[in-house]
Amino acid sequence: MVDTRVVLNGVTLDNPVIPASGTFGYGHEFAELYDINCLGTFSFKGTTLSPRFGNPTPRIAECTGGMINAVGLQNPGVAKVISEELPRLRTYFHKPVVANVSGFSVGEYAETCRLLDACPEVGWLEVNVSCPNVHGGGMGFGTSPEMAAAVTRAVKAVTTKPVWLKLTPNVTDIVSIAKACEDAGADGISLINTLLGMRIDLKTRKPVIANKMGGLSGSAVKPIALRMVYQVYEAVKVPVIGMGGVSSAEDVLEMMLAGATAVQVGAANLVNPFACRDIIKKLPCVMEKYGVEKLTDIIGGAHNG
């Protein structure tokens, strides 16, 4: 029997597979399809202080090996998440969940996190300083070490729950930003968010996406994600939560060898709603194939020697 368990900030997960924020809603659509308690945990839809409708449509464009989205942080706002989504979540998910939070000012991040800190369903706060689809927020905080650190400090001051900072790959030096977050008290670094990209329609000669640009995700981004996880793992002591183009149990092992303690699965959920369940089912078999007895043994394994 192989051991798929991993430990994140003192909490043991049955396995490292975590559906990524924005691809899993608040879990409800997937709980209709399978028992989502098989997951390590999941990261719920990026939540802001106020409700947001998001960007105009079209918000989605396909590309080779992936997709571009410009949803723009559509969510019902933290009050409704706490009053409606979390009570409903309790009926079908019985593990601590990752609360993904975004904001438009340091104070807004802190206030949203403070409100979620009071929720027993929330095990971790994943602070998104990396959304490429909204102006004046999100990614603006994740492209400078100082701003990322300021958000980290503000959130840490209002919560006792572990705080992960979710970083954007759209920077020249992700390591310096990860280190700044760690130095400011982050309990984990999750990466990567989507890469800014675009498509143009040959018939209309205009961008496919109404917002012109959007975030690229899917298999196409996996090598970039692996490289950044590898770099950040070498620079920080806190756990790294790796994501970007993961769609198989083999991808999970690869991301863990790069340095991830847990692995998020994003766009794959949208193509195959059973993707995470399938990955978890296949994980023991793939571990045996590659001679892995304990999954924790291979974290950062690619750095040895």
């Binding site: 924005g22 691809t23 809603g25 997937f30 409708f53 449509t57 918000r59 989605i60 997709m67």
Partner: peptide
Amino acid sequence: EERMGCGFGACMGCSCM
């Protein structure tokens, strides 16, 4: 009709008001 990501309500790619 709208450009869709998932088709089953998860991604919020096809929202309308």
